[in-house]
Design a protein around this nucleic acid. Structure first.
Lengths: 234, 234
DNA sequence: CGTCCAGTTGACTCACCTCAAACGTGGTGG
DNA sequence: CCACCACGTTTGAGGTGAGTCAACTGGACG
């Protein structure tokens, strides 16, 4: 009676060969892969998308999942009344598009010009997975959950200032150099925060007037008073 | 050179023995466990909580996870300004409290008097898991993600009517008999939808005036015009 | 120089919040 | 049995902040 059982590994690789292949999968263009921080996407071609290009649509078969290399990806839903709800922005290094079901529940689009790694998905994600991969899958799903929860918290904020400040704090925390480079339009931000484009614009101007941020260009924001920003964003 | 490799199974059980144990874990008191629908909670004591009792607090160690047997559980966050944000309601049959990290990121409280099964969590959830368990974990996490996403969608709705109608639709869909038995206060609903208690009350009254719902008692709601309700909730 | 488009600003409106009072039900005690 | 209270809920009146509509700005591009 065995105390363990076998799980097939994709392409019939031994662990050793898989590790070698993993190193080989690192792309020439400064793409670094850490199995703990950036799991799941280990191989696949690099795809390029123009701004506003569709990566996949709601209802499409979940044939692949993706990792952002450059630019920003948004996942969104289009409502019957014509409004668009943005669920999340994915920055370089972040993974998106892996789902439990066979269909994408949201659309994914390039919020800015961007490059992403595509990774083909085999079967139902889990079966045939190594323990490491299963752990990465769980960790990925939980991170998606936490991200969605944070988003819900943002949306529960009462005032526009709280929402915008909270958004800026999140973007600052996620940016590698803590320099906010908004590679998205005001409309994108509005659709993410459940506000109108005018309110987003007004609120950013207000934050600049109150010396919390500087807006050298529309897509670049410098936080000049981080403490105050965090106080505003709760 | 092997084409597969071994993964240890918790407690050294073979798959067969694990399956036997799983059947044995079914509790005496009409608690039915289906591995696909209601995964993860396979054993453990039944706990009882009075209304508003704390099940665990934000920051507590993640020693266990839970499944609701009777009543409603809410997970929430307390904000610095004294407001309370409710993240989710868990109805009978639903699982909550399993997290990726070592600390609970939210508090859990009994929204009504309730009974839950507690299941001790060992280590970091994944390691030593069977493939079945790993699949259940992933599925659980993805369901949490979808729930949080739906919540974010609700919160993005522009009007109070949309939010309340959306909430009622969700509760109706999740109730086993499609009869809405709100085992929570108006304050709970308000904190879930990011509204005030007065607005929730007014909106419910308005829906009753427009013959969309009937409110025989404050905690019981009958949908009289489902089509219109769904139209209002988008 | 003109066009185009994203973004900004202004004036006004309205929906939700705030504060306040009334209601109704369940429980307790006279 | 009724009086009273406590609490969750409902309803009312008025204020405010975000939405709406509209005009303007400024940079990119031909």
């Amino acid at each position: 009676m065995p105390t363990s059982f076998a799980i097939p590994v994709g392409h019939g690789c031994s662990p050793t060969r898989a590790a070698v292949a993993q190193r080989a999968w690192v792309l020439p263009q400064n793409v670094e892969e850490s199995v703990t921080d950036a799991p799941l996407v280990l191989s696949g071609p690099v795809l390029h998308f123009e701004q506003d290009a569709e990566i996949y649509a709601e209802g499409d078969a979940t044939r692949a999942y993706y990792k952002v290399i450059r630019g920003v990806v948004r996942t969104c839903k289009f409502l019957d009344d014509g409004r668009r709800q943005i669920d999340a922005f994915y920055l370089p290094g972040e993974v998106f598009g892996l789902e439990a079901g066979t269909e994408h529940r949201l659309s994914a689009e390039a919020s800015s010009e961007c490059a992403i790694i595509s990774n083909r998905r085999r079967g139902d994600a889990i079966s045939g997975a190594t323990e490491l991969f299963a752990r990465q899958l769980f960790s990925y799903a939980m991170r998606c959950f936490e991200r969605a929860q944070k988003h819900a918290h943002l949306l529960c904020h009462t005032s526009a200032v709280q929402k915008v400040a909270g958004f800026l704090i999140d973007m600052e925390d996620r940016a590698p150099d803590r320099m906010i480079n908004l590679q998205m339009t005001r409309q994108d931000i509005a659709d993410y925060l459940g506000l109108t484009i005018e309110t987003v614009s007004r609120t950013l101007s207000q934050l600049e007037r109150e010396d919390v941020i500087k807006i050298p260009t529309t897509r670049r924001i410098v936080v000049t008073n981080q403490a105050k920003l965090r106080r505003l964003g709760i």
